[in-house]
Amino acid sequence: MISKEDLPACPVATTVMLIGNKWKPLIIRDLLAGTQRYSDFLRTIPGISQKVLTENLRSMESDGIIVRIEYPEVPPRVEYSLSELGETMRPILKAMEIWGNNYKSTFKGE
């Protein structure tokens, strides 16, 4: 987990640092719908590689945004869900959804 000293002074920069890449908001979007398995992300996030997905999931787990639960079964089963902290991002993603829809609506009728 990141230490407080490593965080930028600007709160917007902190948020961007934690979820500001191409993939993390899409991972959070999927988790807002409920618990997901690794293969679910590969199916719902076109273009993400297994390597990049793994890196992002590990980073988000380390940052306390998601929770990873590994079940001792054969074959192994791993599930991901939002942590309590991750759930607080719901309004941020909702605002992004609304803004994105509004922006897209400006192109209708071209």
Score class of each variant (00 low, 15 high):
D6A: 15
P91G: 04
E55H: 11
C10K: 12
F41C: 01
L53Y: 12
I45V: 08
M89A: 01
M60R: 11
E87N: 03
P72Q: 13
P25F: 11
V16W: 13
E70F: 00
G34E: 13
A9N: 13
E70P: 01
D63F: 13
P75A: 14
I28R: 04
V74I: 05
V12A: 14
E55C: 00
S105N: 05
S83W: 08
S83M: 09
L57H: 09
M96V: 07
S49M: 10
T44C: 06
T14W: 05
M1C: 08
N101Q: 13
F41H: 09
K108T: 05
Y103C: 07
L85F: 14
K94V: 06
E73W: 03
T54C: 02
P25T: 04
T15I: 15
T106M: 13
P8N: 10
V52D: 04
R90I: 02
I27N: 06
V67W: 05
L93Q: 00
T54V: 00
Y71M: 01
A33C: 11
P46N: 14
T44Y: 01
P46F: 04
I19M: 15
I69G: 01
T106I: 09
R77K: 15
E97S: 08
Y80S: 01
V78F: 02
T35R: 15
G64C: 09
I48W: 13
L32P: 02
N102S: 05
N101H: 08
G100H: 08
I45R: 10
I66Y: 08
E5T: 06
Q36S: 12
P8Q: 00
P91I: 01
I98S: 00
P11Q: 10
N101I: 06
L26W: 15
R29V: 02
D63T: 03
W99I: 03
M1P: 14
S62Y: 12
T44R: 14
I69T: 15
K51M: 08
R90N: 01
E70C: 05
Y80H: 12
I92A: 10
T44M: 03
T35S: 13
S49A: 13
D6M: 15
E5N: 12
T54R: 14
Y38G: 00
L82E: 02
W99D: 06
V78S: 07
I66L: 13
L42W: 04
R37Q: 15
R43N: 06
N101L: 08
M1V: 07
P75I: 09
R37K: 15
A33P: 01
W99G: 04
M1L: 09
R43E: 07
S83E: 00
T106R: 14
T44W: 01
L7S: 10
